[in-house]
Design a protein around this nucleic acid. Structure first.
Length: 960
RNA sequence: GCCCGGGUGGUGGAAUUGGUAGACACGCAGGACUUAAAAUCCUGUGAUCGCAAGGUUGUACGGGUUCAAGUCCCGUCCUGGGUACCA
């Protein structure tokens, strides 16, 4: 009746979208006798540009797994939602005055509509939006739990309610408490505690709380009027907008993530994540095991404590370096050196982070005039200051061993300080020699001589402890996470201030909703936008005016999906204990050290407090690659509005003196910068401009007529062509509206259907790999689906499936395919599964197979990839129920055994012959050897082989 | 600089983890059907020598291990990503 044409596809896909919705096939309950499987996508930020072809890549993969697991008998949770708080909506609001909630709602509606066109099996009833008060009520609630919590190290590291801390303080003070807290926490008695007034008590508790306020150095961006995280600062300017960023001390809400450092590190060994992501998290946490060691200052009072991981190299210490901000600097500096040191400190202070970053290679420092004594051998060691030592890490002081540390080495060379080798190896220049400080035995090291460096560390450590001059110590690079932003479009804190004391609102007053404001930018006096809210107070007290950072809402959302409509809990106990954790998480690797680390942190805290069951939120993680856009460019000679074809433009840059090029350029001389050519006055001579990719064909030829209509400034442009055509430049970039290189999935769906889009995106290459979008192969995928469709239909488009018994050959094709597909899906190798389907389809076409017994199982297998077409064919096969409620076909080895095997036999590594072995032939190697030697005799005229290699009962090579 | 990936035809990419390299698809060329085009189907397609059978060569480059290397080891080059003085 119909072939797989554009109209028919549209009819089928519309029909099934409607059917699925009315039948509610994607609705999932929180209980089942089946085993559970939770498939999660990293939820998107709903940007104004809408969905592009890059977004669905991961969603298609997760949808395939969801459908596959469901057919395999699992109870599958596969939800979707939106990470709806964020800077772009706020920026747009500042510019237009439009409330961010309005734009966000609109964008979400667009996203949902676009996503639905692709046939995802999301249970939309579980949708979450982080900006919805019914959602952020629980983000605030979690904040309250973390505010009311502290981290004890005894008997095991665990988050505890703050009440247990208060009880202990009342009883014994903090002398028995071993907790993760501020470094400057004093030891107090129960009497001290009782003598504190309310404010002092709260200030003391702040040193312990998981969510706390402290005076921290932040990246302050005056132009945006907000604090930025390190991730949001690139090269000293804000990632968004490129505004300058400065370091500034501020009262900030923070999260004591450092308490969990050890567990965050250990937990990595228990989860199935890509190794690079785990490695990034390990580096980010940056655990280093070493010791702190005291050096006595000569001729005056004072002890300098250093942190080192290489106590074994103690005999190689030839100088010491303090951070310029180190508190002892002013005390120990001698009169002669005072001027120089102070001068250096001033310079170091004024050098911004940006300068320090761009001048990593520059070596600078100053001598304090003071000396310390090496406690191991009594050597006199000069003390320097330099900004390569950071005040914020370790103790802000290092013992420098120029023979085993490249920075110390460079410093020693620059200031002509002595170098003592303490490890075997070539060390004339450790920055150039192939020298590894983590190998070899100790030399020049007194009692440590001859020991391997690792043994030497242990021996030296014992000595340090015996002498009482230091302690073993573990340091982490990771810092506590800043948890406040001076922005409007984020979660308000459930916090108010009474007499300057931060207090939590009553739990029944949640959520604290975002107030209305007259503008979304900071106030003229630099206060956050929420300060503009009129009449916004808590029983007459001021609310906290900052909002939570972007990662707050995304650090627990997978729990909300489990029970998204619950009004009394963030998710019910039953739901949480049924779904537990995410079995498969798909998303980009850019979240490796942000979202994925914070989520693990919150999950651990919630577990300790007894709200959830799992220590790790995401059991398996897959990073999908990104689909990049292909941008097209034109080259415009600005003053004469002339467009020069690509190769001519390149030629002009190369040979500006050619007469014909001179004619185009005129008398101008020029310089090239960032793809723009300037003339001698600094005016733009040539511009490289992005052109809409829809105006350019596959051979980079520009459609000049359409182009002239595109933007008014090109209406009267002149063209300099090559071979009568205008050739555009081409480059691979991120897909972006401003680059006119966005490909919208709707276009593909309209032209080929959602099934073709889904299968094509999978066929494009391995999921993890980034690749540019190009549609050149899409016809192949479309033809495959049509061929598959044709297997079920005769030339007139009528259903033509028979109940005939399949032949052994047909069964072999079926079972071979089912086996491979299953293996591929289990290994997330979707591109090869698509190939397998194509091979199978080709084989069945040439066998002219239209038997139900063969086609039915294949239809089920294909339904994960192409749900619409398979539902339709499923009905054609006589089923009433949705294909989703069938079960995945099993394959059997029985049909895969061959009647004979063709063995290639190589001689000296080259294939020289092929032998057929019948199935019923005895399989003993001896038998094959006889056969092989016959082969060999043919080839080597009777010489017996030296060796016959048999692999898995099969001769693979014969050595003559 | 350091830490992870990656480098295979004209193109996207396969290769059961050491066992016939180039599956599948695109593109290209030729053919069939057609008045013609489109669509569809068939054939060929790494390079090189040859009329052919067939030979030689070939997985960034240079070495090595092995009966056998795209796959393992050492060195070099290029490339994508992460990170930034962490003692």
């Amino acid at each position: 009746m119909a072939d797989y044409s554009k109209d028919e596809i549209k009819r089928i896909e519309d029909k099934w979208r409607k059917e699925w919705k009315t039948r509610g096939v994607y609705k999932v309950e929180n209980h089942s006798t089946k085993p559970k499987y939770y498939v999660l996508d990293m939820f998107p930020y709903p940007s104004g540009a809408g969905l592009h072809v890059g977004h669905p890549l991961g969603y298609i993969a997760s949808d395939i797994v969801s459908r596959y697991k469901r057919l395999k008998g699992f109870h599958v949770l596969h939800p979707m939602g939106f990470d709806a708080f964020g800077l772009p909506a706020e920026q747009y609001a500042i510019q237009t005055g439009q409330h961010p909630a309005v734009t966000t709602e609109k964008n979400i509606a667009t996203y949902i509509e676009q996503l639905n066109k692709i046939g995802f099996s999301f249970d939309w009833d579980r949708k979450v939006e982080t900006s919805d008060p019914s959602y952020y009520k629980w983000t605030q609630w979690i904040f309250m739990q973390l505010f009311n919590a502290w981290y004890t190290k005894k008997p095991v590291g665990k988050t505890e309610p703050i009440t247990t801390l208060i009880a202990e303080l009342e009883k014994n003070g903090n002398k028995n408490i071993d907790a993760v807290c501020e470094d400057d926490t004093p030891t107090i008695t129960a009497a001290d505690w009782k003598s504190f007034d309310e404010k002092a008590k709260e200030e003391f508790l702040q040193k312990y709380r998981i969510a706390y306020r402290s005076d921290t150095m932040v990246n302050w961006c005056p132009a945006l009027g907000t604090v930025l995280s390190n991730d949001e600062v690139k090269d000293g300017v804000s990632e968004r907008g490129g505004y300058p960023v400065e370091r500034k001390k501020m009262w900030q809400w923070s999260m004591r993530i450092t308490a969990y450092a050890e567990r965050l590190l250990k937990g990595l060994d228990t989860i199935d994540w890509p190794e690079p992501v785990k490695e990034m998290q390990r580096n980010w946490i940056g655990k280093s095991v070493g010791c702190e060691l005291d050096f006595k200052v000569d001729k005056q009072e004072g002890i300098i404590r250093v942190f080192t991981t290489r106590i074994d190299t103690i005999y190689g210490v030839t100088f010491m370096v303090l951070a310029p901000e180190h508190e002892l600097v002013s005390k120990i500096t001698t009169a002669e050196q005072k001027a120089e040191v102070e001068n250096y400190i001033t310079i170091a202070k004024n050098r911004s982070e940006r300068e320090r970053m761009s001048e990593v290679k520059r070596i600078s420092g100053a001598f304090t005039g003071a000396y310390v004594t090496n406690p191991f051998n009594g050597a006199k060691i000069p003390v320097w200051i330099a900004d390569y030592v950071l005040a914020g890490y370790g103790t802000g002081a290092v013992m420098a061993v120029p023979s085993s540390d490249t920075r110390d080495y460079a410093f020693a060379k620059h200031f002509n300080l002595p170098i003592i080798d303490v490890l075997e190896g070539p060390t004339s220049d450790i920055t150039k020699d192939n020298f590894d400080p983590k190998s070899g035995k100790m030399i020049n090291s007194d009692s440590l001589n001859g020991l391997d460096w690792k043994e030497a560390i242990e021996v030296a450590l014992q000595k340090v402890e015996a002498l009482g001059i230091g302690i073993r110590k573990v340091n982490f690079r990771m810092r506590d996470a800043i948890f406040g932003r001076q922005r409007y479009w984020g979660e308000p804190f459930p916090v108010y201030y009474e007499n300057g004391i931060p207090k939590l609102v009553d739990i029944k007053d949640l959520p604290v909703t975002l107030p209305e404001v007259d503008a979304y930018k900071p106030t003229e006096s630099g206060e956050p936008p929420l300060a503009r809210a009129k009449g916004w107070d808590y029983k007459g007290n001021q609310f906290e005016q900052t909002t939570m950072p972007g990662w707050a809402g995304s650090s627990w959302y997978w729990f909300r999906y489990m029970d998204s409509k619950n009004e009394t809990e963030f998710a019910s106990k039953e739901a949480v204990s049924y779904w537990k954790d995410v079995d498969l998480y798909i998303g980009g690797s850019e979240h490796a050290t942000g979202h994925l680390l914070y989520s693990r942190f919150w999950c651990k805290a919630l577990k300790d407090l007894g709200y959830v069951d799992s220590e790790e939120p995401f059991k398996k993680l897959i990073n999908q690659g990104h689909i990049q856009g292909v941008s097209k460019f034109i080259y415009r000679l600005t003053k004469s509005n002339t467009l020069v074809s690509k190769n001519l433009f390149i030629d002009i840059l190369k040979n500006p003196d050619k007469p014909e090029n001179k004619e185009i350029l005129g008398e101008a001389t020029y310089s090239v910068q960032d793809k723009t050519v300037f003339d001698y006055d600094g005016k733009v001579l040539f511009n490289q401009l992005n052109v809409d990719i829809n105006l350019v064909d596959n051979n980079d030829v520009l459609d000049i007529e359409e182009f002239k209509k595109w933007r008014p400034i090109f209406k009267d442009s002149k063209f300099i062509l090559e071979d009568g055509k205008y050739i555009c430049g081409s480059e691979i970039e991120k897909m972006s509206k401003s680059k006119y290189n966005v490909v919208n999935p709707d276009e593909i769906v309209d032209n080929y259907g959602a099934d073709t889009l889904r299968v094509y995106e999978m066929f494009l290459g391995p999921l993890e790999m980034s690749k540019p979008w190009n549609t050149s192969g899409i016809d192949g995928v479309f033809k495959f689906l049509r061929r598959f469709w044709n297997l079920f239909h005769d030339q007139n488009g009528n259903g033509a499936v028979t109940d005939a018994e399949p032949t052994r050959e047909e069964l072999k094709v079926l079972h071979k395919t089912l086996k491979k597909i299953e293996y591929d899906i289990e290994h997330f190798s979707f591109n090869t599964s698509v190939s397998e389907f194509m091979i199978c389809c080709n084989e069945l076409s040439s066998l002219k197979c239209n038997k139900k017994a063969i086609l039915e199982p294949l239809t089920i297998a294909l339904s994960s990839f192409a749900p619409h077409i398979t539902e339709e064919l499923w009905q054609l096969l006589g089923h009433k129920d949705s294909i989703l409620n069938s079960s995945y076909p099993k394959w059997s080895e029985e049909y895969l055994t061959e009647s004979s095997f063709e063995y290639p036999i190589s001689i000296n590594g080259k294939v020289r012959a092929k032998m057929n072995f019948a199935l019923d032939m005895p399989k003993e190697d001896v038998e094959k050897l006889v056969l092989a030697s016959e082969v060999v005799q043919k080839w080597s005229e009777g010489k017996a082989p030296k060796k016959v290699i048999v692999v898995q009962g099969r001769i693979v090579n014969v050595v003559l």
